[in-house]
């Protein structure tokens, strides 16, 4: 038998992050799972379970690079459906932020943030994009102000 104890430290840490404080209201009805497209296709992704683990204050299974929280598609269906205004997706985003603070991001997320920091875009610009835009009569995309972005990221 493992020791049964609620980790209030972790819950307090989560409460301080925008969106994370809503986890307290969850009453485990499971309507987020019923509406979740990710849960339909992945056996181990379960937003209710994530919320349960936050309520019990068990970060071990959530805060890691291969945690199930990275399977969330950010579709906001659970946000719409939740009767208790828990906003599961925002709690998951808060958990991801904790992962970033602790430096346990999955490699692809790390790469992705690097791309944004270097180019100022989430999708890398290539000459093909501008050619296609010219064909469609759209103005050419200019380089985003990287110096401003640097300040923002700091």
């Amino acid at each position: 038998m493992t020791e049964k104890k609620v980790g209030f430290e972790f819950r307090e840490r989560l409460n301080k992050i925008v969106g994370g404080n809503h986890h307290n209201y969850c009453y485990q009805c499971g309507s987020c799972v019923a509406i979740c497209p990710a849960a339909r296709f992945s056996d181990d992704f379960n937003p209710r379970d994530i919320l349960l683990k936050t309520l019990l204050g068990k970060p071990e299974e959530l805060i890691s690079a291969d945690s199930i929280i990275w399977k969330c598609t950010n579709c906001y269906s659970c946000y719409e459906r939740c009767p208790q205004d828990v906003r599961p997706v925002e709690v998951i985003i808060a958990l991801k932020n904790i992962c970033a603070e602790d430096g346990v991001l999955p490699p692809n997320v790390d790469k992705f943030s690097d791309t944004i920091a270097k180019s100022g875009r989430s999708v890398v610009m290539t000459s093909t994009v501008n050619r296609r835009r010219a064909e469609l009569g759209l103005p050419e995309l200019k380089d985003p102000p990287l110096n401003e972005l640097e300040i923002l990221l700091e």
Binding site: Q28, S31, A34
Partner: peptide, 24 residues
Amino acid sequence: IRGIPGEIEQDPKSNNLKLMVENT
């Protein structure tokens, strides 16, 4: 069954209903 269903869908032919629910 402990769990609140997400969405109800209707089969247009039989008018039967289908719902997804997590048995918590």
